[in-house]
Nucleic acid binder design. Sequence first.
DNA 1: ATGTGC
Length: 473
Amino acid sequence: MELVRDGKNRYRLVRTGKMRVDAVVYVNEVLLPLLRDDKSLEQLAHAAMLPGVINPVVGMPDIHEGFGLPIGGVMAVGEDGVISAGAVGMDINCGVRLIRTDLRVREVPVPQLKNLMLTVEDYVPTGVGKKSKHGELSRRLFERVARTGVRALVEQGVGAAADLEYIEEGGCLAGADLDAVSREAYKRGETQLGTLGGGNHFIEFQEVAELLEPALAERWGLFPGQLTVMIHTGSRGFGHQICTDFSRSHVTAAKKYGIELPNKGLACAPSNSPEGRQYFQAMACAVNFAFANRHLISHDVGRAFADVFRKEPEKLGFGLVYDVAHNIAKWERHGGRKVLVHRKGATRALPPGHEDNPRPYRETGHPALIPGSMGTSSYVLAGTERAAATFFSVNHGAGRVLSRGAAERTISREQFEESMGAVLYNIRNFKEIVDESPLAYKDVDQVVQTLAEIGLTRKVARLRPLAVIKGKD
DNA sequence: ATGTGC
């Protein structure tokens, strides 16, 4: 397997052996060496072997080894090709939502910020295995949420109908069918609406630190010194179970349809087969659940703001900038063809004027939301026409450089605390959070710059972390 | 990522 330089910040794995197409990975000189002891390039090559795959399979600068497709991978497949649960990921519609306020960070003293953190934690369950505090609502609305997404919550008075235009797909991916979902997945999902989860998921209070395209940032409602809230979570146990179910059953399906699997994690079925359609139907349920999960969490964050500032969220300028997925498969048009784009740790970023942009962002292109690691900046990016080369995709974050285990073994308490700087966090026991240290991640500035300097994205705003809420066990 | 492992 040979990686050849193919222009600035761009390397190509030229088709060889059973690969049907090339793989292209976008990294600069700093990020390239980080792929040394990592199977992600091999995993891109595996994806390039699947039936119907379209040239090229793409790796983002935050790429790292995953299950099946690497995290930071984009695999587009024609109508005659396959769909793969492992190319979407365990956390279906893991994604990011950004909320703006009219508050200025300098007007919010640290004790008030701490109070805000505690109040949010009262409303939003965090940590692995946690169940919804809206137990009755979660159970009652679960089926409607899975079928119709965020709209089911809006109908109950959670948020406003106008919010739907500020969510990818209007908060509902078409084609969801609960009949495709196992009993097991259903049971795990119905009690988890409005929960954060663990691992890299978070609720973060941020300050708009820098406007890189001031006119556009202001048009999107951002201003320097502004307090924003970023929510990063997904479909919890529901999506996890769906991925597990289909990664197993599609090994059999692949055999049935004569598909040779380069690795088990890429288990797949023809997208037009009953097995392939069933995965799409189930995945769409989890996509809708995750959009609704972030929506209900925002509602609860709004309640916390109302408690602390003694003003209704609307009076605080509380509003949705955007909500975007980074683990999803969707049918889209690229190069005049209908293709199924699998994005796993990759964020859609449509260019200005593209007809698939939501109405408020039709002219400018929608914001692409990129969380950094805790303790480092996050970014608001915009799409470009050049990113047609990546099926209009950008990175999804900083990307891991140390596994959880390696982080726990090698990062000391002192190093951890230094890496967090002045950022507040809710976890007392450093061992529970060291695997999320900024030291376990790549440099998000390098990652974003890699794409920006070759015109695959534009930096609109940089957000600085003030305080982060992570999952508590 | 995950009621975190065959």
